[in-house]
Every structure is written in C-alpha cells, then in structure tokens.
Design a protein around this nucleic acid. Structure first.
Lengths: 360, 360
DNA sequence: CCTTAGCACTCTCTGGACGAGAGTGCTAAG
DNA sequence: CTTAGCACTCTCGTCCAGAGAGTGCTAAGG
C-alpha cells in the first residue's frame, strides 16, 4: 500500500467531503464544499482539487455528473490522518462506567450481553461482542450452598472477580453434613486452576475421596458442564440490529444483512483477528475478508479477562462516524480492562466514590 | 364480525391458495390451484369459486390480471377453521424441552433470553418474550455466601425454583460471624413475601436488629435493587431479527421494521394484551392496533411463573406458517408452565429420566 | 344448473425515448 | 494559481409501446 501525501488544502477538502457525506449520505458537490466554508476558494478550484483526490483514489464519482463520494481508501486516510477520536462527554462516561460496573460481578454471559447492549445504544449501531473463551480464567474458590428441598447451588468465583453458578439436585439424606467438606476440598483442588481444566482435575481426584463427600462431588461433576463451560452460542453476542436498518444505504436491500448474522463463528473470527494487536482497530469496507462485509466497516477493541482476550465493537455502513465510535470503543475497552484486571477490585469499589467527583 | 360459511370446495380452494402463497410469496393463479390437485375441476371453475371467495373478502387480486392473494380475513378463516396446529417431531420436542429445562434454574433474565433464542431458531422468525414482572414471585429463602476477600454473594430462591443473585462488598472486620445470622433473619422476614415487597419489608425491620448483623443487612439492602428488581430492559427480549430480513415482502423496505423494535414498551403491551386469555392467540395483519404491525402477524402464548404471567411468541409477515408456529408456541408454553408451577420441581428432576424413554 | 373451452380484455413489467436538472471539465481571462 | 462561464454528460422521472400473465365472459356441453 503506497503512502498517500496530501497538501493541507487537499486534506481539508477531503475532510469536508467525508464529513458532509457522513451527514447526508449523498454525493458531495464542489459547491457544497464551498458552502461549508472549509476552504476560502471557489467551487472551480475545489473541483480541481477533487480531481487530484480522485486520481489518488480517495474519492470517486458514482457517475460523471454527480458529486464525490469517499472511497474506502478515503475513509482510511481520514481515520489514519485526519479525524480525532472524539471524547465522550462526562455524562456519557459516567453512564457507561456505571452500567459496566453494575455488570461486573455476574457471569461472563451477562457481562457480554450487557456491554453489547450499552455499546449499541451509545453508538446507535449494531454491536457485537466476543467473550473470551473463559477457559483460562483462574478459579479462586468454589462454594456449595444448600437451597431449599434437595437443591444445591454451586458458585465458582474467578480471580477476575466474576462468578459462575449452577443448581443441581441431591437427596438431603445423601448429603449429610458433607457439603462444606466437599466445597473446601474442591476449592483446594481447583484454586488457581484454569476453568477449562476444572472438570479433568476433579475427575482424576475424585476416586481418592471417601463417602459421603464423594457423592456430593460426583453430583457437582455432573453439573460442571453448566458451571465451567461457556457454550459457543454464549460467546458471540449481537445487539441493536435495528440500527442497521435505519441506514439509507441498506433500507433497500436488507436481505444481505441477514447473511452477516448467520455465520456467527466466521464473524467472531473476523472480529478476533482484527483486535488481537490491542488498541482500537478500524476495518473499512473492502478491507474486510468476508464478502458480506465489503460494504460495512468494523470498529473493534479488545479487553482482557483472566488470561484471555475478548473483543467487542460496532458494525455499520462504511459511512459511519469513525471519530465518535473509536472514542467509544476505546473507552469501553479501557473500563473493562481496569475492571477485570488483577487489581480490578479496587477500581470496582472506588466507582462508588467516583460519584462524588474528583476532589483529590 | 360476520361469520363466514364456506362450502367444502370453497374451503379446499382457499386452503390451496393460502398454502401455495405461503410457499411462493406470489399471487396464486387458478391454474396453479388446479396443478395442486386439491380439487378435480378445471381452472375456469376455480376462477368462479375464486370470485365467490373474493366477494366474501377472503382473497383479493393485487391487480386485475394477477392471481389471488389471501387477505387478513382469509388467513383468519384459515387459522380458525382450516389449519391443524402441526405437531412437532419427537426430536424437536426433546430438543426444546432439554434446552428449556437447562435454563430453568437461572434467573428470570436468562430464562427469557434463552427461550427467545430457541423459539426464534425453531420458528425461523423473530421471537419476542415478555418476562413476568417477577414482583409477585414468592421468595423462598435468602442465603449469604462469603466469597474471597471482602465480597459476599447474596442468593435468593423463589417458590418457582428460580434463583437471583448479586454480589456486594463488605469489610471482613465488619461482618464477623454474623453472616449466617443475617441470612437466617432475612429469610425469616421474607419467606413467602413477594419479591416486590422485599425491600420495603427489610427496611422497616432493619431498625430493630442489633449490630453487627444490622450492618450486614444494611449492605444487603443497598444491593437489593440488583437482587430484587428486574429492569425494564430485561423484561422484553428479542431474538432472531435476521429472520425477518429474509422475507421477500420486507427485503425492499426494511426500515419500518426498525420502528417495531424501537418502542419496546408498546410492543410488550401488545403482546401481553393478546395472550392474557391463556392458550395460543394469533393476531393477523390489520387486526394489530399498532400501525407498524399492520403487515405482520403475531403468534403468542403465555406461561406462568409464581403469581404472574409472562408471554412469548413469534412475529413475522402475515404470510407465515401458522400451523407450525401455533404448535411450537403451544408446546413451549406448556413446558414452561409445567416447569415453573408449584409442583415444577418434580417435572424438572424427571427430565433426566425422560432420556431413558417412556417405558412406563 | 353446473362445468368447461375459447377468447377478448386488462393490467403489470420491461425497455427505449426524451426533457429537465445537477454537477462536472474545460477554456480563457484575471 | 484562481476563477467565471459555458458546454457536456449522466441520472432521474415520465411516457409510450409491446409482451406476457391471468382473468372475466360467453357459449356450448353434460
């Protein structure tokens, strides 16, 4: 890819075209650029510059006598060199942080679903979230709580501060007083073990345990798929499909959008691939490997829970507000990282104090 | 509404038109009906019958020289008098039941989300679920579990067998040994109380409690919104927006579908209104009070958790497979009702045995 | 009286022609 | 290098004609 150099005036005009096109969704004429007062020249001069921008592949005309529309390369130049990631307002930041903090003690599925929802409502775009596999999260402890009748609630907490829980049934006469023993033993086995290894570890150690504790652990082991495995379906989460239907570029032929949703695994891979380097990554139109995505852009960031990374981002038409979305995704991934890092608990508690404002 | 009477032949032809139109999405010609072999007459005779059906308002021609398309009244007659709710296959029943049973111990939000997902995948339509308010569910007991560091997990179980949980923080020195006391006390207060009254009850009783138990309950009370309140956003759940985009009738102008999603409250009211009588209710096209829904049909059923009803159903174009969808919604609401009724636990446990087959 | 073959009729759909409008590219002057 | 002026090109909407689909009607047959 050849590095494109633009003069200051070219850049201003490119910017004006892109920002006007993002607002109106229509080709931008030379006179519209002049009307924007972004450059103090006539429309004829703007036309000359436009021709030069077109030669460089940054804009194009849908047809001979139309205004100009940004190309994918044009958006790329804009994202790399022109736009400034737009900061969120204090109010927006507070809303986001409050919402995410409220989710942070639940299980991974709830976190992912909640973040998707908030992100899509803020961005007014389709949001997609990929949960980290969770298999490499380290278990902190396991508790067993006797509920009413014969039901037992198993709760596992992880080093990142998340909880997973599952209910199973076991006759009261079978349990006796061995619930606490069983929980202590399992915690001893699993503390510091990755979630993904939990089942295997329990299985190998089980034989050495005397009854009646053994019976309890055996029942727990049967439930453990629900406790320790994250089903594929829970790993990818969409929210805000309605926003995509709003865009005039898709209101006519919306059928192909359905295709994007269909192959969840493929899209998850796509999102993961783009975000692995850390930071916020923007993928524009034709840069997407997936055919259905050639007319869409993707803004993704990553976050880390336990040992593994999750990704989240927004999907919309190439004509999207990159500045704002990059700012949004960046801020959300920052919150998530702080919240689920090893020292995350401190951050989490201090969020209540943050409501008082920064007087320190 | 005047009761429409049809001869046997008229009914067969109506049926043929509707079922053919559901398959092809195109107007059905007289010769297409003859080709279906549903009646042993010529196309001219079919045309005469069609005219009579058209006079009765059951079908219409989009334009003079086109075939016939069912009207909303036509679908209504078909649903009321012609179609038979199609039974699911044994495999489908087993899949559905297994899936729902797996959800039945989580919190209400997870149940609602999971059922939406399964329903939309089975129906290949947009599914919408309204959770019961949950305020009138009766609390069974409250447990407090000390997790690592200063975190405490509060778990409430309800008579219907659902669990709700929330994590809060409290300094270890502040808790002392009073966690069990606090839980026992709160359980005593709340057992048999509706979830909606829990906060108030706790608040009035708190003053009489001595330290240090009081401090624990005060902290629990602060968390109780997360434990006992279901946020509005969690009450309505959509899943499967992608299916709606597939339908040829919407692939052109998809924007208005976004409108349906926007006003969640209004749609929740609509769904609730239709399902209150119990059983499966079908609402077709113009029968819908909401403007955006005039071209859509709605198949809803209700289920009961604790004292209140929830609703769930599918939304699609009027051209939908009513027979199959009514069968599906009916079966799902049946499972839900069994699972969350007072005697539900037995059903739940017996689901493991059901895997062995019915030998009794 | 019901059914059916035959035929004229009506309406949509597609493609081409045409004028209006928008916006450009070019040229020549400042 | 910038700009005013003008010719040029392309889209979009409308209009029109021909083809095709499917009906409604009529008259003959059972």
């Amino acid at each position: 890819m050849k590095k494109v150099e633009l003069t200051d005036r070219e850049e201003r005009i490119l910017r004006s075209i892109i920002e006007c096109h993002i607002k109106t969704a229509k080709p931008v004429s030379s006179s519209a650029v002049v009307r924007n007062r972004s450059v103090p020249v006539s429309s004829a001069t703007v036309r000359n510059v436009m021709r030069s921008l077109e030669d460089k592949g940054l804009i194009l005309q849908p047809h001979t006598s139309a205004g100009r529309v940004p190309t994918d390369s044009g958006y790329r130049y804009y994202v790399d060199n022109v736009m400034e990631p737009r900061d969120l307002t204090d109010q927006e930041r507070a809303d986001l942080e409050g919402g995410i903090v409220g989710l942070a003690t639940g299980d991974l599925g709830a976190v992912v679903a909640g973040v998707s929802r908030m992100m899509s409502d803020f961005a007014r775009q389709l949001a997609v979230t990929v949960a980290p596999s969770g298999e490499r999260e380290l278990i902190e402890q396991v508790k067993l709580v006797s509920l009413e009748a014969d039901r037992i609630l198993a709760v596992a907490t992880t080093r990142a501060g998340l909880t997973r829980s599952a209910v199973f049934e076991l006759g009261r006469d079978e349990v006796g007083g061995s619930l606490a023993d069983a929980a202590a033993l399992v915690t001893e086995w699993l503390s510091g073990t990755p979630v993904g290894d939990a089942e295997r570890t329990m299985k190998t150690r089980l034989s050495a345990v005397p009854e009646p504790t053994r019976r309890v652990i055996a029942a727990l082991l049967e439930t453990s798929p629900r406790l320790f495995r994250l089903r594929g379906v829970e790993r990818v989460h969409y929210e805000g499909a309605r926003y995509i239907l709003r865009h005039p570029e898709f209101s006519h032929s919306a059928a192909f959008i359905g295709e994007i949703f269909d192959d969840e695994e493929a899209l998850a891979e796509l999102v993961k691939g783009r975000a692995e380097r850390g930071g916020v990554s923007v993928t524009i139109g034709e840069e997407n490997p997936k055919k259905e995505m050639k007319r869409m852009s993707l803004v993704v960031g990553s976050y880390r829970i336990g040992g593994t990374f999750g990704q989240m981002g927004v999907i919309g038409p190439t004509r999207m507000r990159y500045g704002r979305l990059v700012g949004l995704v960046d801020y959300i991934s920052e919150i998530m990282d702080e919240l689920f890092s090893e020292g995350g608990r401190r951050t989490r508690r201090s969020s209540d104090e943050a409501a008082d404002g920064d007087r320190g």
